[in-house]
Design a protein around this nucleic acid. Structure first.
Lengths: 336, 336
DNA sequence: GTGAAAGCGCTAACAA
DNA sequence: TTGTTAGCGCTTTCAC
């Protein structure tokens, strides 16, 4: 075949005008039953599928939500995306997904492409919190929802997790178990999660009057390898910690790998809590304690927010969701 | 602002015709330098971004590749997607990604949506190998590449992994180490990978004259939970195996969890090899031996195939890539 | 209930 | 080197 029938082909075959065909494909009613049947038959016979491109052209909407994530291979994001997609499909929306690989440059490119394509809204975990590319979207009146990382200088709806609180809970737990030398593997300090988790760490220390020791702080980048290096750093620190807090899932992986190689006994010689649950948490020995976030829910809320913003643009205040993460205590942290 | 400037706005501001503007945004040359500058300035001033919708309408191509995966939360797919995206971006293509959750119904829906949206090609890991929905795509002349799972009844380019061989290698390894009672946790037998890995299993047994015992075969569904149940099943089997082969990554996770709970000593009482590498493989103790696939490469090849098919439709034979997986022997399998 | 026709923003053929 | 113009396939008034 290799030929895409158009609304006109259908109209001809059914012996009606294209306007009438349009009415039936859009369920607008006001068409006689017999006419409708003729049309439906013609559609089936031709295998007609209406062109979303032409439709978008006319309607000025694409029913598409653009999703921008920094790293699609970080399992956190596929779970969030699954939540978005689920809700989107229910409302007749579709998604374009792109991964920036944490590059602000790629991110800006993607934003432009999304605008070109006329997305109706954007859900973004930005790699560039102060980025001016957000302005591009706002200038076009495209609703934006920031997920997981806030966006500075612009008013956008956000759904975040209370990182400070999550990290705080984790560190407090460790302190209550008697730890005083607690190491942290930080995320990049130019991202909200990276910064906030570090703040939670310091807050807990302060509150319990534990002296802060900068040699117990390792600057990571949220990638696995920096977790690995962080563990090494802490192990060889003059003031070797009795507990470690890792700021995200990928670094947790790297960190645990290092512990194994160093033969630094997890749960015995060193307690551990990581931010974000990881697949392996419950089946390595000892089971990992983690700060866990409702990933799918985050996605669902994010979609809900863009959706509302698309449909009731004008009279909506800025909305900020702050979900509270849950500390799941398992076996990797012990009384000292 | 909230107003999208069009090519006409640019033309007016620059005092030229829209045709000339079109020439410069498409780098077609044949425009005087001064004119071009005027136009470029106008574009910048207005913040003009050309509409891909209108462009697609005219050109009959969207520069979009649709990707359909059965389960986006299975880490295998994000890695494949990353490979596709990488290559796609290089060639000026973009991707729409949807997950079917293994549902043939959702899959058919997605196919229709993709056609509506005029994707130039589709890369699919189908949940329905015999599905007739593929015909829809073919009727429209949309190139299809099947990844990881073959498609029956239709001629499409495919990039598969030699599952038979991969499983065979794994089982042979186990046999050479002296195992005779080898359990398998199978994938769904209505998917190529599920079937083929089972075939590889049987082939190795046969070749080495190990009697086949159906009580050592557990039918899973590629989800974590069935790996868990599979391990339980094998543990309580009258003919308890000394080695287990798991047919995919998610089931491997479930399986290892069960082993831990059963206190069935991995690597000592029971050897283990899983299909597909998993994050945790190298940092649980003992490290997991796995059959590993080049995920990103698979994605890259898949894109290459659609791309070629889009551009040289006519004179291209059906291409079938069969990548050989690699057996990575680590610590979870031991001489008996 | 139905049809005619305008027009969405762009590309490309043709003219100048 | 530049401009005019005919559509691409659809939705949506406005007539009838």
């Amino acid at each position: 075949m290799d030929y895409k029938p158009t609304i006109e082909d259908v109209a001809k075959l059914a012996n009606v005008s294209i306007a009438t065909v349009s009415r039936v494909i859009n369920n607008q009613g006001g068409v006689r039953k017999i006419t409708e049947e003729k049309i439906v038959n013609a559609i089936r016979e031709l295998g007609y599928i209406r062109s979303a491109v032409a439709r978008s052209m006319k309607r000025k909407e694409t029913n598409t939500i653009g999703i921008i994530v920094p790293d699609i291979t970080n399992p956190f994001f596929p779970h969030v995306v699954a939540g978005i997609e689920q809700k989107a499909r229910e409302k007749g929306y579709y998604t374009i997904l792109s991964s920036t690989n944490e590059s602000p440059i790629i991110e800006e490119e993607i934003v432009k492409i999304f605008i070109e394509r006329g997305v109706d809204g954007v859900i973004i975990t930005t790699a560039n919190e102060t980025g001016n590319h957000i302005k591009l979207l706002q200038d076009q009146g495209i609703p934006i929802v920031a997920v997981d990382r806030a966006i500075k200088n612009f008013e956008v709806d956000t759904v975040l997790v209370d990182n400070v609180n999550g990290a705080y809970q984790a560190i407090r737990q460790l302190i209550l178990q008697g730890h005083e030398k607690i190491g942290i593997i930080c995320g990049p300090q130019n991202t909200t999660p990276g910064r906030e988790r570090y703040i939670g760490y310091k807050k807990a220390l302060e509150e319990y009057n534990i002296p802060f020791d900068s040699s117990l702080v390792y600057q990571g980048d949220f990638k696995e390898n920096s977790g690995y290096k962080g563990a090494l750093h802490l192990f060889y620190s003059k003031n070797r910690p009795t507990a470690i807090f890792s700021s995200n899932n990928q670094m947790t992986i790297g960190c645990v790998k290092a512990l194994t190689e160093l033969d630094w006994k997890l749960g015995e010689e060193v307690s551990f809590i990581g931010f974000d649950d990881v697949e392996i948490a419950t089946f390595i020995k000892p089971k990992l304690s983690v700060v866990s976030r409702p990933m799918t829910t985050i996605g669902e809320i994010a979609f809900q927010l863009v959706y509302e913003r698309i449909h009731f643009k004008e009279n909506l205040p800025k909305r900020e969701y702050l979900l509270t993460p849950e500390l799941k205590i398992r076996e990797s942290c012990h009384k000292i």
